[in-house]
Computed example of a mutant assay.
Amino acid sequence: MAESDTWTRTCTIFDVPLSKKTQVITIANKIWTNFKSKLTSLYVYKKPLKKRKRRSDADPLKKYEYITPEVWKRFKAMRMTKEFQASSELAAERQKKNKYPHRMSRGGYRKVRLKLEKKSLEAKKSGKSAPKIRRGDLWIEGRVNKNRECLNSETDAAIERINLVNEQVAKGEFLPSGKVDVLTKALGTDEHYGRVRGVWGSSGA
């Protein structure tokens, strides 16, 4: 889907200022990519979802009525090429090397921030103190479930380091400066060019 088409279609439905064009296109691209990945996993490769043991044998054309038979035929053919499968396997290998897998849904860090902001507002209404939401807080919330459990021991250890550095900040033993903040110090690695951890991709950070 071309970026111009994405923006034009969005503007026909919603009243969006031009200043939000990049943000809208970024979000739309992420949703579009995730949707294609879902179609590929469930209906092309027929892999079971993590939340259920059985695979999906449903007809995607019945579930998504806007997908025509011809479009679905071309999509399946493209997904079954050697080039695409090689690219998919490479991406899977990169994901396996991810030391700190997140638990976030399609909403990503934006949804996590909204959740924390809601808690902060509720705390203020009840007369409790509500500390500022930090990048490390978002990073942690994106990797724990409702029982505060992580997917692996590496993430548990990273969260402990983040909490330790936060204590150092409170005691005046560490002063965050520029790109070297609590999260960067705790993880011990610099940010990748063009990416910022613990921040919503279109937040402008």
Rank of each mutant, 00 (worst) to 15 (best):
residue 193 Y to W: 15
residue 156 D to M: 04
residue 46 K to M: 13
residue 3 E to I: 12
residue 178 G to D: 15
residue 78 M to K: 14
residue 169 V to W: 00
residue 103 R to H: 09
residue 192 H to R: 10
residue 178 G to I: 14
residue 185 K to V: 03
residue 172 G to Y: 01
residue 106 R to P: 02
residue 71 V to H: 11
residue 182 V to I: 11
residue 38 K to Y: 11
residue 154 E to T: 04
residue 94 R to M: 09
residue 118 K to I: 08
residue 160 E to M: 07
residue 100 Y to C: 07
residue 149 E to H: 07
residue 75 F to C: 04
residue 38 K to G: 10
residue 199 V to W: 14
residue 86 A to G: 03
residue 48 P to A: 03
residue 185 K to W: 01
residue 11 C to E: 14
residue 112 V to Q: 13
residue 151 L to S: 03
residue 89 E to G: 04
residue 16 V to H: 01
residue 98 N to R: 13
residue 190 D to I: 13
residue 130 A to V: 12
residue 196 V to Y: 06
residue 70 E to K: 15
residue 89 E to Y: 04
residue 116 L to A: 07
residue 201 G to K: 05
residue 179 K to M: 12
residue 195 R to F: 12
residue 145 N to M: 01
residue 124 K to T: 08
residue 114 L to A: 13
residue 4 S to H: 11
residue 171 K to H: 06
residue 180 V to W: 03
residue 90 L to I: 04
residue 25 I to Q: 00
residue 201 G to C: 11
residue 160 E to L: 09
residue 56 S to M: 09
residue 147 N to K: 13
residue 79 R to A: 10
residue 133 I to P: 00
residue 23 Q to L: 09
residue 154 E to C: 02
residue 62 K to D: 04
residue 118 K to F: 07
residue 178 G to L: 15
residue 196 V to Q: 08
residue 181 D to R: 03
residue 150 C to K: 02
residue 67 I to R: 00
residue 29 N to A: 06
residue 6 T to R: 14
residue 8 T to H: 14
residue 57 D to Q: 09
residue 102 H to A: 11
residue 60 P to T: 01
residue 118 K to E: 14
residue 200 W to Y: 11
residue 171 K to L: 08
residue 36 K to A: 09
residue 70 E to C: 11
residue 202 S to W: 14
residue 161 R to H: 02
residue 116 L to C: 04
residue 129 S to F: 05
residue 187 L to S: 05
residue 122 E to F: 01
residue 154 E to V: 03
residue 151 L to Q: 06
residue 69 P to A: 07
residue 155 T to W: 00
residue 111 K to G: 03
residue 115 K to M: 12
residue 10 T to H: 15
residue 37 S to V: 11
residue 183 L to T: 00
residue 59 D to K: 00
residue 49 L to K: 15
residue 27 I to P: 01
residue 41 S to G: 06
residue 110 R to F: 09
residue 6 T to M: 14
residue 98 N to H: 06
residue 137 D to T: 10
residue 201 G to S: 12
residue 90 L to K: 09
residue 85 Q to P: 01
residue 90 L to V: 05
residue 174 F to E: 02
residue 164 L to D: 08
residue 65 E to N: 05
residue 59 D to Q: 00
residue 163 N to G: 04
residue 60 P to Q: 01
residue 131 P to H: 15
residue 86 A to R: 05
residue 92 A to G: 13
residue 152 N to L: 05
residue 133 I to K: 03
residue 53 K to S: 12
residue 205 A to Y: 15
residue 116 L to K: 03
residue 68 T to F: 01
